[in-house]
Simulated assay, not measured.
Amino acid sequence: MSSFFGFLQRILNRIESGVSREQIKRLRSAGHGIVLGRGVKIEHPECVSLGDRVHINDHCWISVLTENRETGRPPVELQPDLRIGDGCYIGRFGTLACINRITLGRKVMIADRVFIGDAAHGFVRADLPICEQYMTSKGPVEIGDGTWIGIGVSVMAGVKIGRNCVIGAGSVVTNDVPDFSIAVGVPAKIVRRIDG
């Protein structure tokens, strides 16, 4: 019986590997040594660039929106740009939601269950459910080289996190974080600098 399950596992691994190769082929640009875990979903891969040795772990969702819709109004074409630099690691169950621009520098380390988004649901119209309103963006998200984003963090639109920063577990980042800073909390506040 265990040999049957081993055989089934090998078949599933081959299917998953084939799906990953197909997604990588459709990216705007792709470096060498990219690893996509099981269940990784990349929407509109033509808007996504991955550098060398990028590792995106199991069940991550890269949600890229190329058209903004609102009930009763014309769709608005978007030009999203999502770039993940060389040597980045994204943990399991992560979400990157992009309608504007998200840039991860080199060797950024992101723990499990992290949300990074440059957009939010609009809610200005009382006559429409929120899910039927245009998405909005306060601006792009940028995360500098060598930064570590802890487990369960949310990084919101319009935020720039500098180089070699640490964002503590469960934090919600709503404002910029300068280079070599440690930030924690909801909303995240700088608690100290990393001295070389």
Rank of each mutant, 00 (worst) to 15 (best):
S2T: 12
F5W: 11
L8W: 11
Q9S: 15
Q9E: 15
I11S: 12
L12K: 14
I15P: 08
E16L: 00
S17A: 12
S20A: 13
I24T: 01
L27I: 05
R28N: 13
R28K: 15
S29C: 12
S29E: 15
G31C: 02
H32E: 15
V35A: 01
G37C: 02
G37Q: 00
R38W: 07
G39K: 09
I42K: 04
E43C: 00
H44M: 08
H44C: 13
P45A: 00
E46L: 11
C47Y: 09
S49L: 00
L50F: 00
L50V: 00
G51R: 11
G51I: 10
G51W: 10
D52C: 03
R53V: 04
N57E: 15
D58Q: 12
C60D: 10
I62E: 00
T66H: 00
T66G: 00
T66S: 02
E67D: 07
N68W: 12
R69G: 01
R69T: 11
R69N: 10
E70D: 04
T71N: 10
P74E: 15
P75G: 08
V76H: 06
V76K: 10
Q79Y: 09
D81V: 02
I84W: 02
G85T: 14
G85V: 14
G85M: 13
G87T: 11
I90G: 03
G91Y: 10
G91T: 03
R92A: 09
G94S: 11
T95D: 05
T95A: 09
T95L: 13
T95V: 11
L96D: 00
A97F: 04
A97I: 01
R101H: 07
I102H: 05
L104W: 06
G105D: 03
K107Q: 11
V108L: 10
M109F: 15
M109C: 12
G117I: 03
G117Q: 09
D118Q: 05
A119N: 14
H121W: 01
F123W: 14
V124Y: 13
A126G: 09
P129D: 14
P129E: 15
I130E: 15
C131I: 14
E132N: 12
E132Q: 15
M135F: 14
G139K: 00
P140F: 02
P140S: 10
I143S: 04
I143G: 05
G144A: 12
D145W: 08
W148Y: 10
W148A: 06
S154N: 11
S154V: 08
V155S: 05
V155H: 06
V155E: 02
V159K: 06
V159E: 08
K160V: 14
I161S: 08
G162E: 07
N164C: 04
N164K: 05
C165A: 09
C165D: 07
A169D: 05
G170M: 12
S171I: 04
V177F: 06
P178W: 12
D179T: 04
S181C: 13
S181L: 13
I182Y: 08
I182E: 06
V184W: 11
A188W: 01
I190G: 02
V191K: 08
D195P: 01
D195T: 06
